[in-house]
Protein backbone atom coordinates (compact mmCIF):
# COMPACT_ATOMS: atom_id res chain seq x y z
CA UNK A 1 0.00 0.00 0.00
CA UNK A 2 1.22 3.42 -0.88
CA UNK A 3 1.43 5.20 2.46
CA UNK A 4 1.66 8.54 0.68
CA UNK A 5 -1.91 8.17 -0.57
CA UNK A 6 -4.12 10.44 1.45
CA UNK A 7 -7.41 9.14 2.82
CA UNK A 8 -10.21 10.88 0.94
CA UNK A 9 -13.50 10.27 2.72
CA UNK A 10 -16.31 11.35 0.47
CA UNK A 11 -19.96 10.81 -0.38
CA UNK A 12 -21.38 8.64 -3.14
CA UNK A 13 -22.74 11.73 -4.92
CA UNK A 14 -19.38 13.47 -5.06
CA UNK A 15 -17.69 10.23 -6.03
CA UNK A 16 -20.09 9.58 -8.90
CA UNK A 17 -19.54 13.04 -10.34
CA UNK A 18 -15.77 12.62 -9.95
CA UNK A 19 -15.84 9.23 -11.68
CA UNK A 20 -17.93 10.65 -14.51
CA UNK A 21 -15.56 13.56 -14.95
CA UNK A 22 -12.47 11.37 -15.03
CA UNK A 23 -14.05 9.04 -17.57
CA UNK A 24 -15.23 11.94 -19.73
CA UNK A 25 -11.68 13.22 -19.64
CA UNK A 26 -10.28 9.84 -20.64
CA UNK A 27 -12.88 8.90 -23.26
CA UNK A 28 -14.32 11.58 -25.59
CA UNK A 29 -17.22 9.30 -26.53
CA UNK A 30 -18.76 9.63 -23.04
CA UNK A 31 -21.67 12.10 -22.89
CA UNK A 32 -24.16 12.73 -20.09
CA UNK A 33 -27.89 13.31 -20.58
CA UNK A 34 -30.83 13.75 -18.28
CA UNK A 35 -33.13 16.04 -16.40
CA UNK A 36 -31.40 18.71 -14.31
CA UNK A 37 -27.98 17.16 -14.75
CA UNK A 38 -26.40 20.27 -16.25
CA UNK A 39 -26.70 23.57 -14.46
CA UNK A 40 -28.11 21.98 -11.32
CA UNK A 41 -25.53 19.19 -11.32
CA UNK A 42 -28.17 16.53 -10.80
CA UNK A 43 -30.96 16.45 -8.24
CA UNK A 44 -28.86 13.90 -6.38
CA UNK A 45 -25.53 15.55 -7.05
CA UNK A 46 -24.15 13.00 -9.48
CA UNK A 47 -23.14 15.38 -12.23
CA UNK A 48 -21.89 18.44 -10.35
CA UNK A 49 -19.38 20.51 -12.32
CA UNK A 50 -19.62 18.48 -15.52
CA UNK A 51 -21.38 21.14 -17.58
CA UNK A 52 -18.85 23.80 -16.61
CA UNK A 53 -15.98 21.49 -17.42
CA UNK A 54 -17.18 19.73 -20.57
CA UNK A 55 -19.75 22.10 -22.07
CA UNK A 56 -23.05 21.65 -23.82
CA UNK A 57 -21.70 19.25 -26.46
CA UNK A 58 -21.03 16.63 -23.77
CA UNK A 59 -23.59 17.45 -21.07
CA UNK A 60 -27.25 17.72 -22.07
CA UNK A 61 -29.99 19.07 -19.83
CA UNK A 62 -33.01 17.38 -21.38
CA UNK A 63 -36.70 18.16 -21.36
CA UNK A 64 -38.92 15.90 -19.25
CA UNK A 65 -39.06 13.37 -22.07
CA UNK A 66 -37.61 10.14 -20.74
CA UNK A 67 -38.74 8.05 -23.70
CA UNK A 68 -37.11 10.52 -26.04
CA UNK A 69 -33.76 10.90 -24.37
CA UNK A 70 -33.31 7.29 -23.27
CA UNK A 71 -34.25 6.19 -26.78
CA UNK A 72 -31.73 8.69 -28.13
CA UNK A 73 -29.09 7.26 -25.81
CA UNK A 74 -29.72 3.82 -27.32
CA UNK A 75 -29.10 5.28 -30.77
CA UNK A 76 -25.96 7.07 -29.59
CA UNK A 77 -24.67 3.89 -28.00
CA UNK A 78 -25.36 1.93 -31.16
CA UNK A 79 -23.38 4.54 -33.06
CA UNK A 80 -20.36 4.01 -30.82
CA UNK A 81 -20.79 6.67 -28.17
CA UNK A 82 -21.01 5.95 -24.45
CA UNK A 83 -23.97 7.89 -23.10
CA UNK A 84 -24.58 8.08 -19.37
CA UNK A 85 -28.23 8.91 -18.75
CA UNK A 86 -29.95 9.85 -15.54
CA UNK A 87 -33.50 8.70 -14.92
CA UNK A 88 -34.10 10.81 -11.84
CA UNK A 89 -36.22 8.29 -9.91
CA UNK A 90 -36.52 4.61 -10.76
CA UNK A 91 -40.24 5.11 -10.13
CA UNK A 92 -40.39 7.07 -13.40
CA UNK A 93 -39.45 4.04 -15.53
CA UNK A 94 -43.10 3.51 -16.34
CA UNK A 95 -43.09 6.29 -18.90
CA UNK A 96 -40.00 5.05 -20.74
CA UNK A 97 -39.71 1.32 -20.17
CA UNK A 98 -39.84 0.49 -23.86
CA UNK A 99 -36.63 2.37 -24.51
CA UNK A 100 -35.03 0.44 -21.66
CA UNK A 101 -36.21 -3.15 -21.94
CA UNK A 102 -37.20 -3.41 -25.60
CA UNK A 103 -34.53 -1.21 -27.17
CA UNK A 104 -31.43 -0.99 -24.96
CA UNK A 105 -31.68 -4.49 -23.54
CA UNK A 106 -32.31 -6.20 -26.89
CA UNK A 107 -30.03 -4.31 -29.24
CA UNK A 108 -27.13 -6.76 -28.95
CA UNK A 109 -29.39 -9.82 -29.12
CA UNK A 110 -31.65 -8.79 -31.98
CA UNK A 111 -28.64 -7.70 -34.00
CA UNK A 112 -26.87 -10.99 -33.35
CA UNK A 113 -24.03 -9.06 -31.74
CA UNK A 114 -23.60 -6.63 -34.66
CA UNK A 115 -24.66 -3.62 -32.59
CA UNK A 116 -23.88 -3.19 -28.91
CA UNK A 117 -25.43 -0.77 -26.46
CA UNK A 118 -22.75 0.65 -24.15
CA UNK A 119 -24.85 2.98 -22.03
CA UNK A 120 -25.31 3.65 -18.34
CA UNK A 121 -28.72 4.44 -16.88
CA UNK A 122 -28.25 6.04 -13.47
CA UNK A 123 -31.34 6.06 -11.31
CA UNK A 124 -32.17 6.74 -7.69
CA UNK A 125 -33.92 4.18 -5.52
CA UNK A 126 -35.21 3.91 -1.99
CA UNK A 127 -37.47 5.55 0.53
CA UNK A 128 -37.42 6.38 4.19
CA UNK A 129 -37.77 10.14 3.85
CA UNK A 130 -41.51 10.57 3.41
CA UNK A 131 -41.73 10.90 -0.37
CA UNK A 132 -44.41 8.19 -0.71
CA UNK A 133 -44.83 5.42 -3.20
CA UNK A 134 -44.16 7.19 -6.51
CA UNK A 135 -40.72 8.42 -5.43
CA UNK A 136 -39.48 5.77 -2.98
CA UNK A 137 -39.46 2.41 -4.72
CA UNK A 138 -36.45 0.19 -5.39
CA UNK A 139 -37.65 -2.15 -8.16
CA UNK A 140 -34.48 -4.25 -8.01
CA UNK A 141 -36.41 -7.33 -9.05
CA UNK A 142 -38.14 -5.57 -11.94
CA UNK A 143 -34.84 -4.66 -13.55
CA UNK A 144 -33.04 -7.80 -12.43
CA UNK A 145 -35.78 -9.87 -14.05
CA UNK A 146 -35.31 -8.50 -17.56
CA UNK A 147 -32.49 -9.99 -19.62
CA UNK A 148 -29.99 -7.94 -21.59
CA UNK A 149 -29.18 -5.39 -18.91
CA UNK A 150 -26.69 -5.42 -16.09
CA UNK A 151 -27.88 -3.89 -12.82
CA UNK A 152 -25.58 -2.63 -10.08
CA UNK A 153 -26.00 -0.77 -6.80
CA UNK A 154 -23.16 0.43 -4.56
CA UNK A 155 -23.43 0.50 -0.80
CA UNK A 156 -20.57 2.95 -0.34
CA UNK A 157 -18.50 5.56 -2.14
CA UNK A 158 -15.52 3.30 -2.80
CA UNK A 159 -17.71 0.85 -4.69
CA UNK A 160 -19.64 3.66 -6.38
CA UNK A 161 -16.48 4.80 -8.15
CA UNK A 162 -15.35 1.33 -9.14
CA UNK A 163 -18.80 0.27 -10.32
CA UNK A 164 -19.28 3.51 -12.26
CA UNK A 165 -16.00 3.14 -14.13
CA UNK A 166 -16.81 -0.50 -14.86
CA UNK A 167 -20.32 0.44 -15.98
CA UNK A 168 -19.20 3.13 -18.41
CA UNK A 169 -16.55 0.82 -19.89
CA UNK A 170 -18.96 -2.10 -20.26
CA UNK A 171 -20.19 -2.84 -23.79
CA UNK A 172 -23.75 -3.27 -22.54
CA UNK A 173 -26.54 -1.31 -20.91
CA UNK A 174 -25.87 -1.02 -17.20
CA UNK A 175 -28.55 0.22 -14.83
CA UNK A 176 -26.64 2.00 -12.09
CA UNK A 177 -28.92 2.32 -9.08
CA UNK A 178 -27.97 4.61 -6.25
CA UNK A 179 -29.80 4.63 -2.94
CA UNK A 180 -31.03 8.03 -1.78
CA UNK A 181 -30.30 7.23 1.85
CA UNK A 182 -26.63 6.69 1.00
CA UNK A 183 -26.15 9.55 -1.39
CA UNK A 184 -24.73 12.15 0.97
CA UNK A 185 -27.01 14.99 -0.04
CA UNK A 186 -27.44 17.60 2.66
CA UNK A 187 -31.20 17.49 2.37
CA UNK A 188 -31.42 13.71 2.77
CA UNK A 189 -30.24 11.80 5.78
CA UNK A 190 -27.17 9.75 4.96
CA UNK A 191 -25.97 6.50 6.48
CA UNK A 192 -22.46 7.23 7.76
CA UNK A 193 -21.06 3.93 6.50
CA UNK A 194 -21.65 4.96 2.89
CA UNK A 195 -19.04 7.71 3.20
CA UNK A 196 -15.74 5.95 2.65
CA UNK A 197 -12.22 6.41 1.45
CA UNK A 198 -12.10 6.79 -2.32
CA UNK A 199 -8.66 6.26 -3.83
CA UNK A 200 -7.69 8.69 -6.56
CA UNK A 201 -6.34 5.86 -8.68
CA UNK A 202 -8.24 4.36 -11.60
CA UNK A 203 -9.91 1.17 -10.39
CA UNK A 204 -12.98 -0.87 -11.23
CA UNK A 205 -15.25 -2.90 -8.97
CA UNK A 206 -16.11 -5.80 -11.27
CA UNK A 207 -19.71 -6.12 -12.37
CA UNK A 208 -21.11 -9.54 -11.49
CA UNK A 209 -19.13 -9.97 -8.27
CA UNK A 210 -20.63 -9.75 -4.81
CA UNK A 211 -18.44 -8.87 -1.86
CA UNK A 212 -18.00 -10.39 1.58
CA UNK A 213 -17.94 -7.23 3.67
CA UNK A 214 -17.82 -8.93 7.08
CA UNK A 215 -16.63 -12.43 7.72
CA UNK A 216 -18.48 -14.71 10.08
CA UNK A 217 -19.28 -18.34 10.73
CA UNK A 218 -22.76 -18.60 12.16
CA UNK A 219 -25.20 -16.97 9.70
CA UNK A 220 -25.06 -15.26 6.33
CA UNK A 221 -26.76 -11.88 6.01
CA UNK A 222 -27.25 -10.84 2.38
CA UNK A 223 -28.01 -7.24 1.48
CA UNK A 224 -27.55 -4.56 -1.14
CA UNK A 225 -27.41 -0.79 -1.09
CA UNK A 226 -28.73 0.48 2.21
CA UNK A 227 -29.60 -2.96 3.53
CA UNK A 228 -25.89 -3.84 3.62
CA UNK A 229 -25.70 -1.27 6.40
CA UNK A 230 -28.71 -2.83 8.12
CA UNK A 231 -26.93 -6.19 7.92
CA UNK A 232 -23.69 -4.75 9.31
CA UNK A 233 -25.54 -3.10 12.20
CA UNK A 234 -27.35 -6.34 12.94
CA UNK A 235 -24.07 -8.28 12.75
CA UNK A 236 -22.49 -5.94 15.28
CA UNK A 237 -25.41 -6.44 17.66
CA UNK A 238 -25.33 -10.21 17.18
CA UNK A 239 -21.64 -10.30 17.96
CA UNK A 240 -21.92 -7.98 20.94
CA UNK A 241 -25.10 -9.29 22.52
CA UNK A 242 -25.51 -12.87 21.30
CA UNK A 243 -22.00 -14.12 20.66
CA UNK A 244 -23.08 -14.89 17.08
CA UNK A 245 -20.73 -14.04 14.19
CA UNK A 246 -22.59 -13.11 11.04
CA UNK A 247 -21.06 -13.02 7.59
CA UNK A 248 -22.36 -10.09 5.54
CA UNK A 249 -22.56 -10.15 1.76
CA UNK A 250 -22.99 -7.05 -0.37
CA UNK A 251 -24.73 -8.18 -3.56
CA UNK A 252 -23.41 -5.13 -5.50
CA UNK A 253 -24.62 -6.56 -8.82
CA UNK A 254 -28.27 -7.55 -9.10
CA UNK A 255 -27.80 -8.81 -12.67
CA UNK A 256 -25.90 -10.95 -13.34
CA UNK A 257 -26.29 -12.14 -9.76
CA UNK A 258 -23.14 -13.60 -8.19
CA UNK A 259 -24.74 -16.72 -6.79
CA UNK A 260 -21.40 -18.42 -6.14
CA UNK A 261 -20.26 -15.96 -3.49
CA UNK A 262 -23.59 -16.22 -1.70
CA UNK A 263 -23.73 -20.02 -1.92
CA UNK A 264 -20.16 -20.38 -0.67
CA UNK A 265 -21.00 -18.34 2.41
CA UNK A 266 -24.24 -20.20 3.12
CA UNK A 267 -22.46 -23.54 2.73
CA UNK A 268 -20.16 -22.36 5.50
CA UNK A 269 -22.74 -20.86 7.88
CA UNK A 270 -25.83 -23.00 7.19
CA UNK A 271 -28.15 -20.10 7.95
CA UNK A 272 -29.29 -17.17 5.86
CA UNK A 273 -31.34 -13.99 6.00
CA UNK A 274 -31.75 -11.87 2.88
CA UNK A 275 -32.60 -8.23 3.33
CA UNK A 276 -33.83 -6.00 0.52
CA UNK A 277 -36.07 -2.96 0.52
CA UNK A 278 -37.92 -3.90 -2.68
CA UNK A 279 -41.32 -5.59 -2.58
CA UNK A 280 -41.39 -9.08 -1.09
CA UNK A 281 -43.18 -11.24 -3.64
CA UNK A 282 -41.30 -12.45 -6.72
CA UNK A 283 -38.41 -10.43 -5.39
CA UNK A 284 -34.64 -10.50 -5.13
CA UNK A 285 -34.64 -12.11 -1.67
CA UNK A 286 -36.80 -14.92 -3.00
CA UNK A 287 -34.41 -15.35 -5.94
CA UNK A 288 -31.42 -15.66 -3.62
CA UNK A 289 -33.19 -18.20 -1.43
CA UNK A 290 -34.35 -20.18 -4.47
CA UNK A 291 -30.74 -20.38 -5.62
CA UNK A 292 -29.71 -21.74 -2.23
CA UNK A 293 -32.53 -24.30 -2.37
CA UNK A 294 -31.61 -25.35 -5.91
CA UNK A 295 -28.01 -25.84 -4.84
CA UNK A 296 -29.23 -28.30 -2.22
CA UNK A 297 -27.43 -26.59 0.61
CA UNK A 298 -28.68 -27.98 3.93
CA UNK A 299 -29.82 -25.20 6.25
CA UNK A 300 -29.91 -25.40 10.02
CA UNK A 301 -33.05 -23.25 10.09
CA UNK A 302 -35.53 -21.92 7.52
CA UNK A 303 -34.22 -19.05 5.38
CA UNK A 304 -35.43 -15.59 6.30
CA UNK A 305 -36.57 -12.77 4.04
CA UNK A 306 -36.77 -9.16 5.16
CA UNK A 307 -38.38 -7.13 2.40
CA UNK A 308 -40.94 -4.42 1.93
CA UNK A 309 -44.42 -5.97 2.22
CA UNK A 310 -46.62 -6.15 -0.87
CA UNK A 311 -48.18 -2.74 -0.38
CA UNK A 312 -47.38 0.64 -1.93
CA UNK A 313 -44.81 2.57 0.09
CA UNK A 314 -46.84 4.81 2.41
CA UNK A 315 -46.17 8.47 3.13
CA UNK A 316 -46.61 9.04 6.87
CA UNK A 317 -43.42 8.21 8.78
CA UNK A 318 -45.59 6.29 11.23
CA UNK A 319 -46.61 4.02 8.37
CA UNK A 320 -43.45 4.03 6.26
CA UNK A 321 -41.05 3.13 9.06
CA UNK A 322 -43.38 0.42 10.26
CA UNK A 323 -42.91 -1.44 6.98
CA UNK A 324 -39.57 -0.35 5.51
CA UNK A 325 -36.83 -2.91 6.27
CA UNK A 326 -34.34 -1.65 8.84
CA UNK A 327 -31.55 -2.88 11.10
CA UNK A 328 -33.95 -3.94 13.86
CA UNK A 329 -35.99 -6.11 11.51
CA UNK A 330 -32.77 -7.58 10.17
CA UNK A 331 -31.59 -8.38 13.68
CA UNK A 332 -34.92 -9.95 14.57
CA UNK A 333 -34.81 -12.15 11.46
CA UNK A 334 -31.24 -13.20 12.23
CA UNK A 335 -32.17 -14.05 15.81
CA UNK A 336 -35.11 -16.05 14.57
CA UNK A 337 -32.73 -17.96 12.34
CA UNK A 338 -30.05 -18.69 14.89
CA UNK A 339 -32.63 -19.54 17.52
CA UNK A 340 -34.37 -22.10 15.32
CA UNK A 341 -33.49 -25.52 14.08
CA UNK A 342 -35.00 -26.74 10.83
Amino acid sequence: MNTATAIRKQTIAKTMSEALASEMERDPSVVVLGEDIGKLGGVFGNTGGLLERFGTDRVFDTPISETGFIGAAVGMAGAGMRPVVELMFVDFFGVCMDAIYNLAAKQAYFSGGQVSCPMVLMTSVGGGYGDAGQHSQCLYATFGHLPGMKVVIPSNAHDAKGLMLAAIRDANPVVFMFHKALQGMGWLGTVAGSITDVPESDYEVPIGKAGVVREGTDITLVGLGITVHHCLAAADALSREDGVEAEVIDIRTIAPLDRETILASVRKTGRVAVVDDDYLSCGLAGEVIASIAEAGIPLASPPQRVSHPDIPIPFSPALEHAVLPNAEMTLAAARQSVGERS
Binding site: T67, G68, F69, I70, G71, A72, A73, V74, G75, M76, A77, G78, A79, G80, M81, P83, D98, A99, N102, L103
Partner: peptide, 12 residues
Amino acid sequence: QGMGPALGAAMA
Protein backbone atom coordinates in the same frame (compact mmCIF):
# COMPACT_ATOMS: atom_id res chain seq x y z
CA GLN B 1 -40.00 3.58 -30.73
CA GLY B 2 -37.53 3.69 -33.60
CA MET B 3 -37.57 7.45 -33.35
CA GLY B 4 -35.42 7.74 -30.23
CA PRO B 5 -32.58 5.61 -31.59
CA ALA B 6 -32.71 7.50 -34.90
CA LEU B 7 -32.41 10.76 -32.98
CA GLY B 8 -29.45 9.32 -31.08
CA ALA B 9 -27.71 8.24 -34.27
CA ALA B 10 -28.32 11.69 -35.73
CA MET B 11 -26.84 13.32 -32.63
CA ALA B 12 -23.83 11.00 -32.67
